[in-house]
Design a binder for these strands. Structure first.
Length: 872
RNA sequence: GGAUCCUUAGCUCAGUUGGCUAGAGCGUACGAUUCACAUUCGUAAGGUCACAGGUUCGAGCCCUGUAGGAUCCACCA
């Protein structure tokens, strides 16, 4: 006996994975460079049946979290399914440099050792982080293997690989030449702790309690009171704005007021931005430190005075306030205003405040010169292709959400002040007197700080690209797409990722993909929601409810984890997850293991035939299981096409456990059709393989007659069977179930062993005595001799009696009465339906006929039960 | 303020274009046990499908509204 009595995943999983990896089955079966055998200049593989997915790259030096676990479960199931279906599959793994994330970790490391980033040059820092990441790398890749990801490791793409950088530069250069990249001084979201800018989507807005202060700005003969939550920025005020419709201030418009604590006069202007309903209706305008004020400033040509430096301290203020932090300055300003009698009131309010998503520091809108991508054209093209339904979304509601986002997209700030990233390939003219030369030039030599072009010296921009700029090329770089060459793996068949990066990543991949290749980067997008804890709460370190996928893999096995995380999950939904579903998965693996163990032992006993490819069905249970397996395959195929993984797993679970094991294998303890057992076991193993790769492969390797790897087996064809015979087995199941239920309901225990079964004119039971006896465990089945006796089973088309003594029948009387009433209620509702002329006339004929048949059957049943009751 | 999604058994969720008595896993109760599996087998209890209308022969499903929950976007001087 090769099979242990229970399946212990830990004993097999790493060996199985190693064997797959060594055999080369993960690599696509067709080469990825163009093939032109006949020399006609056309790639000869245009008809190749391919399926490709690229992995959203996990952080190279991090650990996988539960969301990665879900990603891999989904992607790998797809890849394995299409591999079995004969496609040349390419699953490209990736590793992200995770620019900001890694940088935060590294900077903390520096601080621990008493250093700061400002002690080093950009190049030094880059080299240091590179070493740091290299040291930490590898865990993540081992964890992907533990999850069973059947990805092509030779093609692993790291976000800072030469080809990734090269591709980003090529696109940037194209954009520069197309005039889609510009350098602009704009307000950016700035974290004063990390001293870097962020894109809008990287900022977290939180509702916070704050104070709204009223401050008087005086003028000769009066004052105008403004409301602000940020009094310390008043040094940067260059105007006070009121709404043009606001009659209260019509006399002051066009004049100037005195800016408190300074000797400056600022104008009173009118602008729609001022809301007469809010506060006093007058608002101070600080173009250098507020997004709305910036726009007001643009409209009115106001000066932008920076009063907060990048380290969060005050500049360009009266001397008293210079160098204070914003918080200190606010205190001081309020104190001074109060002393001067200019503070007119304060009120507690709740407002949303932008925070750095990593350190929680309040984001400071900061005036900076940065590189921006003009997204209008990119977005317009993307919208056009999305509206043409070139990409199918799961869930489909995301398509509209994405289009709406693209319609309102603002220009994209791609500059980051973090050394750990791809250097922006732009150089600035060092000598400002050389007026004929352009200020900025594109050049790929970013390893140099300074270059000379045409006798003019240029220095490199110190900034790096926003991570999303390079990662939006992921489908392009991972598939080695090159201009002018047919690539059978681009566009990707599917892009699977977390729903919360729809805008940050998916939107940008679509825009960049179209810009670079002219084609959408993928045909379908499957977005998964958050994996919540067992009570539907978000997982977070502070709540302590984080589930580590690797712990579950260690405890229950990789397959159990995969089955568990897919269960009860649908596209785009945030759904709870608990260990229970993983346990259910573990149990299925063990069940399958024991199914294989039983089948192998029957095959061993029966002496293996030389060829298992042919089989016959010799009895109704065999026809029935073939029918059920075919139906299961139909459903699995349908589900895979529609990304309904949970349902696919559910169907397989039911078929394997409730049908194959509980009915078919039980019946095979009598019949033992070894050819069919082998065939059907192979089919269910292959069908389950995409979801539970390890246990199915382990079994495959242990079975005496199978060859090769199941991972590259052929997806099963439909089984041949006799449908009439199969449906007879349905009747038999009905008989057995009713007998079991009745026996259970009788008073006393162990009834199945006590009472025999009697039949009259029932060929189904007569012909299958042994089978019925085995399934019900009754001690005997005999033909009724003489008058009916015992307890008649509640089956319309069978005359069957449990041979129980009269006193037991009497004890069953109440249950019988209840049963008659229940059937009566069903009969009533059926009759009511038939009495409705609209139903009879309008409903489809087959439904009406069905109802008629059912009425007949219920009537038959009810009269027999009543007869039984009468006898008692 | 705008948008999207959700509300079905004690818990977590299925329920594909409307069709008969609404399903599963876990949990619960009762029973079984040499003979593949206690990670097992059998049986059962448990649901006004959030609420109110409407369309239809027929609604968990379609339409309108209400309530509750989640997420996203925008704004908040």
């Amino acid at each position: 006996m090769k099979f242990a009595s229970s399946y212990e995943p830990g004993e097999y999983e790493s060996d199985i994975y190693g064997a797959w990896e060594a055999s080369g089955v993960f690599a696509p079966s067709t080469p990825t460079v163009p093939v032109d055998d006949d020399g006609d200049g056309v790639d000869d593989r245009s008809a190749v049946n391919t399926y490709s997915i690229v992995m959203p790259p996990p952080n190279a030096n991090g650990n996988l979290h539960i969301g990665h676990g879900l990603t891999i479960a989904v992607e790998d199931s797809l890849i394995r399914y299409y591999r079995l279906r004969g496609k040349s599959t390419w699953y490209v793994p990736g590793a992200d440099h995770a620019g900001f994330e890694t940088w935060v970790v590294y900077e903390r490391e520096l601080e621990k050792h008493g250093h700061t980033r400002f002690e080093y040059s950009r190049d030094e820092l880059y080299a240091k982080v590179w070493d740091f990441v290299a040291e930490q790398r590898g865990n993540m890749e081992l964890q992907l293997r533990a999850l069973g990801a059947s990805c092509s490791w030779n093609d692993l793409t790291f976000a800072l690989d030469e080809n990734v950088i090269d591709r980003a530069y090529t696109t940037f250069e194209k954009m520069w030449n197309d005039g889609m990249v510009y350098r602009g001084e704009k307000l950016v979201n700035f974290c004063t702790k990390h001293q870097t800018a962020f894109a809008d989507i990287e900022v977290e807005h939180k509702d916070e309690k704050g104070t709204l202060w009223d401050i008087a700005y005086t003028y000769d003969g009066g004052e105008i009171v403004v409301s602000t939550t940020r009094p310390e920025t008043l040094f940067g005020d260059t105007a006070v704005a009121v709404n043009p419709e606001d009659t209260r201030y019509k006399d002051v418009i066009g004049t100037t007021v005195h800016l408190p604590l300074t000797d400056r006069e600022i104008p009173v202007i009118t602008d729609e931005h001022a809301d007469p309903e809010y506060g006093t209706g007058a608002v101070k305008i600080t173009p250098a430190h507020d997004f709305d004020d910036f726009e007001v400033g643009e409209r009115h040509n106001l000066e932008r005075i920076k009063v907060i430096a990048e380290d969060g301290t005050m500049i360009n203020t009266p001397e008293k306030y210079l160098g204070l932090t914003t918080a200190e300055c606010r205190k001081q300003v309020l104190k001074d205003l109060k002393e001067q009698g200019l503070l007119r009131g304060e009120k507690k309010i709740t407002h949303s405040v932008a925070h750095c998503y990593k350190c929680g520091t309040v984001i400071e809108p900061m005036l900076k010169e940065q590189w921006f991508v003009d997204v209008k054209k990119l977005a317009a093209i993307a919208i056009e292709h999305l509206e043409a339904n070139e990409i199918k979304f799961y869930p489909d509601s995301k398509q509209k959400i994405l289009i709406d986002y693209l319609k309102n997209l603002k220009d994209w700030n791609i500059s980051r002040q973090i050394p750990w990233g791809i250097a922006i390939p732009m150089f600035r003219k060092a000598d400002t007197t050389a007026t004929d030369e352009p200020d900025w030039i594109f050049d790929r030599r970013t390893h140099l700080k300074e270059i000379e072009v045409g006798g003019v010296k240029y220095t490199r921009d110190e900034d790096t690209f926003d991570t999303w700029f390079s990662s939006s090329h992921w489908p392009i770089v991972c598939t080695d797409w090159t201009e002018g060459n047919f690539n059978p793996y681009y566009p990707l068949n599917a892009m699977e990722t977390a729903g919360d990066i729809l805008f940050a990543w998916v939107a940008r991949m679509i825009m960049i993909g179209l810009y670079v290749t002219g084609e959408v980067p993928f045909r379908e997008v499957y977005l998964h929601g958050l994996v919540l804890d067992a009570h539907g709460k978000k997982m977070s370190k502070s709540k302590g409810n984080v589930i580590n996928p690797m712990d579950l893999v260690t405890k229950y096995g990789s397959d159990a984890f995969r089955l568990g995380i897919l269960r009860g999950r649908s596209a785009g939904m945030n759904q709870a997850f608990s260990e229970n579903s993983v346990i259910a998965g573990r149990n299925l693996c063990n069940k399958l293991w024991n199914i294989a163990r039983l089948v192998q032992s029957i095959v061993d006993e029966g002496g293996a035939e030389d060829d298992g490819s042919t089989y016959t069905t010799d009895n109704m249970g065999e026809d029935w299981i073939c029918r059920e397996i075919n139906a299961c395959l139909d459903q699995v195929e349908q589900c895979m096409q529609e990304y309904r993984f949970a349902e696919a797993v559910e169907v397989l679970y039911q078929t394997i456990w409730d049908k194959y094991a509980d009915w078919f294998l039980e019946s095979q303890k009598i019949f033992k059709n070894t050819d069919l057992l082998r065939k059907t076991l192979e089919v269910i193993l292959v069908a389950l393989h995409p979801f539970a790769p390890f246990v199915t492969e382990t079994i495959w390797q242990n079975l005496s007659w199978t060859e090769g790897f199941i991972i590259i087996a052929e997806w099963p064809h439909r089984l041949k069977y006799d449908p009439i015979s199969a449906s007879e087995f349905d009747s038999l199941i009905g008989v057995v179930s009713e007998a079991r239920a009745t026996l259970q309901a009788l008073p006393g225990t162990n009834n199945a062993k006590k009472y025999g079964l009697l039949y009259d004119k029932d060929s189904l039971v007569e012909d299958n005595k042994l089978l019925v006896r085995t399934l019900t465990k009754v001690p005997s089945i005999n033909h009724l001799d003489g008058a009916p006796r015992g307890l008649r089973l509640a089956l319309a088309n069978h005359e069957l009696y449990l041979d129980v003594p009269a006193y037991v029948v009497k004890a069953y009387r109440d249950a019988l009465t209840e049963k008659i009433l229940a059937v009566g209620r069903e009969l009533d509702s059926l009759n009511a339906r038939m009495l409705n002329p609209s139903y009879v006339n309008r409903a489809p004929a087959h439904l009406v006929k069905e109802t008629k048949d059912q009425i007949q059957e219920k009537e038959k049943l009810i009269s027999r039960l009543k007869n039984q009751l009468h006898l008692i």
